[in-house]
């Protein structure tokens, strides 16, 4: 990013903030879709059974912890890559 000047940095920062909400939304929607797909397959009832609900909650936690861990490793690998490029 060192090739952007002050005003450009600022403009870029604004873009980043606009995108962060979208990213969060996307990850949230991915989580819901995945946990629904993995946990819900009984369509004889109109609300979640307690078994399905338990599965969804555990899936939610696992997905969040998973994406946190991927995020940490991702950052490390990215920094490694940047360093090797200089």
């Amino acid at each position: 990013m060192d090739q952007l000047n002050g005003r450009e940095q600022q403009e870029f920062q604004k873009l980043v903030e606009q995108k962060q909400m979208k990213d969060f939304m996307r990850l949230y929607s991915d989580l819901v879709q995945r946990c629904f797909t993995d946990c819900v397959s009984d369509f004889t009832t109109k609300t979640l059974t307690s078994r399905e609900e338990g599965c969804v909650l555990k899936c939610t936690e696992k997905f969040l912890k998973h994406s946190e861990r991927v995020g940490a490793r991702f950052q490390e690998q990215n920094e490694l890559l940047m360093k090797n490029m200089r």
Binding site: L31, V32, K46, T47, L48, E52, L57, S67, G71, F74
Partner: peptide
């Protein structure tokens, strides 16, 4: 059930502290 799941996930994330969420 999809709407139900959507609500339950949102509530659970608030409970466990979604602030730590995206990780990146």
């Amino acid at each position: 059930k999809y709407f139900d799941t959507n609500v339950k996930v949102g509530e659970h994330m608030q409970k466990i502290g979604s602030s730590q969420f995206p990780g990146r």
